[in-house]
Amino acid sequence: MRFAAYIFLVLISSAAHSETAPAAVEPVIYGHKILETYPHATDAFTQGLFFDGDTLYESTGQYGQSSLRRVDIETGQVLQITALPPTHFGEGAALVGDDIFVLSWREGTAFRYDARTMDLEKKFQYDGEGWGLTYNGEDLVMSDGSAQLRFIDPETFTEKRRVTVTLRGQTLNHLNELEWIDGQVFANVWRRNVLVRIDAQSGAVTGAVDLRGLLPEEDVVPGQTDVLNGVAYDGQENVLYVTGKNWPKLFKIELVEREKNH
């Protein structure tokens, strides 16, 4: 593997634990190509990002500011918004049929909203923290800041199973925002400018996307612009949309596989 790709994996691995798994998988390394750049609301502490057809939804965090939003992708304008209780810190979100589920960070509460009206329909309780959320067509897939992915029954919000995520045989911590793409889970790694692609059955990281330098330095506002977070998939074009917490821009990107040395 090229030296730059090797260094990139070392950077990711610093978020991993020393606990080892039975087998190690060598992930494919991807760079990225920016296809389009869109405005993004800088008051959005982005936690979840997903499409429903052509409609972009976003969940945001911070106590007293957490929300679920429907967004005009071309302008970044918020078209519809519902606030979470000020006592709850909003986290990941996912669409299940006509409903949207939104996690909270430390409050152990998941909210289910009507996707059209954004009216609250029901609340569920869970143990531990809530970070990222996605839907695989049967189960909700949830991260909690550890190396674990939980598979959740959306009808009852009861846990069905867990998978431990490993990078090169070591457990990978700080899994955050999630997106289900073609049978695998893409996840932000908190405080790392990287997405990892995870085999949903084994938990092995099969790919890593280098997003260093995605947001230009001139767009970074000290004390305001936070970490990369937020990934949505457009299956029609086979592209990703990514942003970050309080970022001024949303990026449409395609993945570019990096060459290996022979």
Rank of each mutant, 00 (worst) to 15 (best):
P86Q: 12
P86N: 11
G108D: 04
V185M: 14
T158R: 15
E121G: 12
E177C: 03
L103M: 02
Q80H: 14
T171Y: 06
T164Q: 07
T117I: 02
A187E: 09
E107S: 15
L195Y: 06
Y113V: 12
G76W: 07
N193F: 08
T75S: 14
D98Y: 07
D139F: 11
S104R: 02
T134A: 10
G76S: 06
D144S: 00
T87I: 11
M142P: 10
L140K: 07
I81N: 14
G132T: 12
P154Q: 03
G145V: 00
N136F: 13
E179W: 05
I198M: 08
R112Y: 05
W190E: 00
S202A: 11
F124W: 12
P154R: 05
R162S: 10
V102R: 02
G128D: 13
H174W: 13
R197Q: 08
I100R: 01
L172I: 08
V194M: 14
M118L: 10
T171F: 14
L167P: 14
N173C: 01
M142G: 15
Q201G: 15
V196K: 01
E107V: 11
V163E: 02
T134G: 01
L79M: 02
G128I: 03
G92S: 05
G108I: 08
L167M: 06
V189Y: 07
